[in-house]
Structure formats: C-alpha cells, structure tokens
Design a protein around this nucleic acid. Sequence first.
DNA 1: GTCTATATGATGATAGAC
DNA 2: GTCTATCATCATATAGAC
Lengths: 180, 180
Amino acid sequence: MPRQRTGDTRARIQQTALDLFAERGVRQTSLRDIAERLGVTKPALYYHFASREDLLNSLVEPMVKDFEAYAAELRAAAPIPPRELLGSYFDLGYRHRTVIRLAIRDLSVLQELNLADRFIEWRGALGELLVGSNPSLSDVVRCMVALGGLSDCAVMIDHEPVAELREAAVEAAYDSLGRP
Amino acid sequence: MPRQRTGDTRARIQQTALDLFAERGVRQTSLRDIAERLGVTKPALYYHFASREDLLNSLVEPMVKDFEAYAAELRAAAPIPPRELLGSYFDLGYRHRTVIRLAIRDLSVLQELNLADRFIEWRGALGELLVGSNPSLSDVVRCMVALGGLSDCAVMIDHEPVAELREAAVEAAYDSLGRP
DNA sequence: GTCTATATGATGATAGAC
DNA sequence: GTCTATCATCATATAGAC
C-alpha cells in the first residue's frame, strides 16, 4: 500500500526532524541526516521549507504561541493562588516537553531563534506574580528553585503518571517558596 | 614589553578558548576563532593540544577531578545533615560555575566527553544520601527540585554576594525537601 | 514534488619550511 | 614554536531536468 496520501510530506519531514533532533541534538543533525532517514534527497526538503532555520522554527512555533497566550492570560487573571499558578506552569511545560528538551539540550537554538529573551521575560512575569516586584535575593532564589524545579520535573521525568508527577512537583515547588 | 615569558602559551590558549566558549558556546567556537583572537594561527594550537577535544578536555578536567573527590568524600562521611550536604553541593557548583555554564549551554559537550553518565551517577549518589534508596516519586521530585535548584542558583545567579546567595539557596532547597 | 549535479564556504587536521 | 599551504569532509543552499 502507498505510504500516505499526498500533502503530508511536510508533516513527515517535521516528525523526522523532531525524532533526530531528540536523538542526537539539533546542532548535530544535518539536513542530510533528515533526508536520508525519510528516504528523500536534500533538495526535496527545500521544496517544503525555505531553509533549515525555517524548518526548526516551524517545530518551535506552537510552543511559542502557547507560552505567549499563557503569559497574556495570567496578566489578565491576576492575582492567582500560588498553587494554581505553579500547576498551570507545570502543565505548560509538560505540554511542550518534547520541544523544550531540544531547547535545553542546545541552548544556542534559543539564541538563534531569538527566544532566550522571551523566555527570560516570561519567567520574570511569572516570578512577579509569585513574589511581587522588588523581590529580595531570597525571593529571587526561591523563584528560581520553584519554577526551575517545576520545569525540570515536567520535562525531564518520564514514564510516570502525569497526575501524580504534577501533584508532587507542585508540592515541592510550593514548599521551596517557604510560605509559613 | 614582551607579552609574557615563554611557556604560558598553552595557558593563554586555554583562557582564550574559555572566554570564547562562554561568549558564544562550545559548538559555535572554532579553532580558527580561538587562534584569531589570540593572534596566532591554527597549527600553533596543534603544537600545544593534540586535537580540539583534547583542548576542551583540559578545560573540563579540573571539575571532573573535583566532583569525583567530592563523591568519594561523601560516601566515606555519611550520614551527613541535609543542610550541610546541600551547602557543600552549592560550593562545588559555585567553584566550577564557569565550566558548568558551558556544559549546560551545550549538553552535547557532556555526551562527547562521556560526562553525562557520571553526572547522573553523582546526582544519584547525592539523592540517595538525601532521601535514601527506594525513593518514592515524591522523593525523586523533591530531590530534583532541591539539587537542580541549588545548581541553578550557584551557576546562573551572578553579581550577588556568595555568602548570602548560598544561605538563601540552601534554605530554599531544604524547604523543597518538605521536612516537617 | 522530487530528482541529479553543483556552488560555496566552513571545519578539523596535517606536512613541512623556518 | 610558529608559520604557509593544503587536505578531506562536511555543511547549507541553488539550478535546472523530469
């Protein structure tokens, strides 16, 4: 039987790229690698994507859109109970854990796509909702431990039931905030 | 006056490499870049280092040695009060924050130098000292938040007095362990 | 939409003169 | 110890046939 109906080559390229990026890293994966595994030639990729960066961007775009929507939503809904805020941040990270893993593994990807600044901005906005503006050093540290730890758990711990993982991570993050 | 007495070219290569690696990442820095900034040619580098990887290794070696000594010391000294353990782990990370930043920025460096497995092993040994063997999911999560958060603070937060940073980080990490 | 063939440039590494 | 000159290999990207 035929592989697929026409029109899905673009999606198959994206999936193959994502697989390879996850296996060996973004920088370590060439267009040749992607084309070979998919069973096409390099120029075929260029029919579907203007450049290597265009392909990479198409993989990261959904996450960026989602993060931006999340940040806007939070700004509108404040104030939010800390546990709720931490939980929704876990969910966000968990939803995009595949792409985030790529970005963590090769942070230059973030730089090249001009995402580093936006990430810092997002984190800053979240931190402000957690410990207010004008945070002390202790506040900054607790924010870093809580939000960093939350991301780590959502992204790095695999093969565990999500609900339990989420509950445990939110609890640890909340405790790290040191509320009485 | 002459730049330096003879015999320090090797060290100057290392310093230049470290600077460039920190500025733009390991993978994004070529031997050409290093040679150019130092004002020598590429073959000159090869007189002092057998290969690019040899140069990179020479930069990472002190950290590896120190981590291994630390792990051995802990195994011998157990049991250790949690705060003390967390504090010494902060110190370790802080001592080598420059090199750790490089490794975090491009995790493939760890893989190539076969350091990833050792890092996981070190972390595992530390975790065992914190929450025992046979940890629950909650224990695993709390370990990840505490130790990950400590490293993040030691490595990523700059321009802050170390003593205060250390105290705040240890406190947040300890709280994340959820001890009553 | 996919191919063959190729342009162009960067990389790590080496040979051999001085 | 450092140089000039060069190599093989890889990368992204394009031109044009089918």
